[in-house]
Write a protein that binds this DNA or RNA. Structure first.
Lengths: 131, 131
DNA sequence: TATAATTCCCATGAATTTAGTAGGAATATC
DNA sequence: GATATTCCTACTAAATTCATGGGAATTATA
């Protein structure tokens, strides 16, 4: 039960972008160096964040990445939902879960409650809270 | 962010043991078949549960496993703490965590809060609640 | 005391996921 | 046209999870 390095990197980068304001886009190189995240790994993470609509990219010279919303509108839940391949506490509550026991599983309600509790908490933290 | 199969197996077995009362020990073979858990994998799980003091084992013929406490005294948190190699939401709050950024990490408080929230919730579910 | 049923212990292997790397095409600025 | 950037696809390495195998130790009972 753990948040991956990818998720933590994503959060860090989003915080870094917040601290920079929304004017000029920040190039990947600068983000990677500043946050000490492997360049190519971060590149793949940024790709996911762009696809999810949390950041926008500007290509070509003087390009880079920029938040698509003000920091107070983006929560930790928004970010981690993108990067964590399984955001569910137990596999049992995954979208693709296909457990034959699900119908009468005594623990399923607990996993659902856990998912909810985690989501509630992560929603409370916005990027603004971190800077 | 997910509870492993091991953890779910452990919970299931503990529930099965609860349902059987504390009298005669239940052999591994029976547990494995009944719960559809690979015999050898379950064996290693039982070993951990014994070491943690949640179940006791009786060796030799007519032996098996038995809870060491009444089902209402054992919570999901007690069980998962044993089986999950990392019970922390983020590696950052692991016992062995040794992050150079920890001192001034803006997200650390969130991970701690998350750990707490998860623990609180899992403590609410006792084995008795599942049967 | 032999036998069968069991837990205990140690080592190994397979599968899956996570983390990271490499190279080049496309795009924009100057 | 040179340069700085994102985008895309594929690959590799490392770690973790999920098991499997074989045999020693222990105990009840016939």
């Amino acid at each position: 039960m753990i948040v991956s390095a990818k998720g933590r990197y994503a959060l860090r980068v989003m915080i870094a972008l917040s601290a920079r304001g929304q004017d000029a886009p920040v190039p990947l190189k600068e983000l990677a160096l500043g946050e000490e995240i492997p360049y190519k790994f971060l590149e793949s993470i940024m790709c996911e964040l762009v696809k999810a609509g949390l950041v926008e990219s500007v290509r070509g010279k003087n390009g880079g990445y920029r938040l698509t919303m003000p920091p107070e509108k983006c929560t930790a839940a928004d970010i981690l939902r993108v990067t964590e391949t399984s955001f569910a506490a137990a596999a049992c509550t995954n979208e693709n879960a296909d457990c034959p026991r699900a119908e009468m599983c005594p623990t399923l309600p607990m996993w659902r409650a856990l998912d909810l509790a985690v989501d509630e908490l992560l929603k409370k933290y916005t990027l603004k809270d971190f800077i």
